[in-house]
Design a protein around this nucleic acid. Structure first.
Ligand SMILES: [Zn+2]
Ligand SMILES: [Zn+2]
Ligand SMILES: [Zn+2]
Ligand SMILES: [Zn+2]
Lengths: 154, 154
DNA sequence: AGAGACTTTATAGTAGCTTCAAGGTCAAGC
DNA sequence: GCTTGACCTTGAAGCTACTATAAAGTCTCT
């Protein structure tokens, strides 16, 4: 009864756009579902759970590759779960590294900001001068921190 | 003498790919430079400084739009620099917000990780179960934190 | 039979590059 | 003079994880 869903049902229940569900199918995270006579996708409870799993992983900001990896482990229930731990630990490392980069960045930005306490003309602005002459981080930490979301307006 | 550069000179000196320089031109951050007879781009010291400015901004993870904004202010040297401060403060806000999201994320991930202290089979793994049944963050904080750089291997 | 809500596929756009392909320019070496 | 190789040119495609659009087919209700 409640275990046959169309794509829009899943989308509503799990608060994800239908296009995203099709995209996950295209990317092989969800397998190709059964179809109705009219060629509509039909999902069962197992597929709903699988999608829930994926969405939780995405909420934790894992890449689709990381999620693919976890799904593979999930599909082999007899295997030990050491590898699950490894994937998670690696991802925790990604987050930690990103936090470290952002803290560095925040320090640099605040230092730069402090160069203009008394706003004058932009020709003499310590910020613009700082940006022109800042030491170029040569080989040190060239990684990009990634600060702006999909939409970073405002 | 030292104030005429070809694109490769600039690229070597500032440690940036030539394609990126052309891309910045395409995006209007650098204006179209003079050309040699053979149609090669020729840059002067002012263009080198402008590119340096852009690269420093990128190293601070500003968007090209933010940089465009700062360049416009830099090109109007008589204006007050209050707007420069505003752009920088907004960007500092972007970084702060991202740090906040990532700290949240780190807490969630560590909580999840703690569900598997004694590795068993993946069928019974507390991590996989947690990912399947985790509370879905409905309306709360749906923003994506953005954890993985261009290449996040290893 | 027709309206409206749903579904299908395919395609393009997002940010900031990076990589590739196919060719043009230029200085040095034989 | 001719070739080699380093450099330059443009244009297009690929990357992540979607998001949005278009044009068409399906289903349900009245
Ligand atoms: Zn990760
Ligand atoms: Zn100032
Ligand atoms: Zn910003
Ligand atoms: Zn486990």
């Amino acid at each position: 009864m409640t275990n046959r869903y169309r794509i829009g049902d899943l989308a509503t229940q799990l608060a994800v756009p239908t296009q995203t569900i099709r995209y996950y199918e295209h990317e092989g995270l969800l397998s190709k579902p059964a179809r109705t006579e009219g060629n509509y996708r039909v999902y069962g409870i197992a597929e709903r759970e699988r999608l829930t799993f994926i969405l939780h992983c995405r909420a934790l900001d894992m890449t689709l590759d990381e999620i693919r990896h976890l799904l593979r482990l999930r599909d082999a229930p007899g295997q030990g779960c050491a590898e699950v731990n490894a994937v998670l630990d690696a991802h925790i490392g990604h987050v930690a590294e990103r936090i470290r980069l952002l803290n560095d960045l925040q320090l640099q930005l605040k230092d730069l900001r402090a160069r203009c306490e008394s706003p004058s003309t932009s020709k003499d602005c310590g910020i613009l001068q700082g940006l022109a002459s800042f030491p170029t981080a040569q080989d040190g930490g060239a990684s990009r921190a990634g600060v702006h979301g999909r939409r970073a307006q405002e």
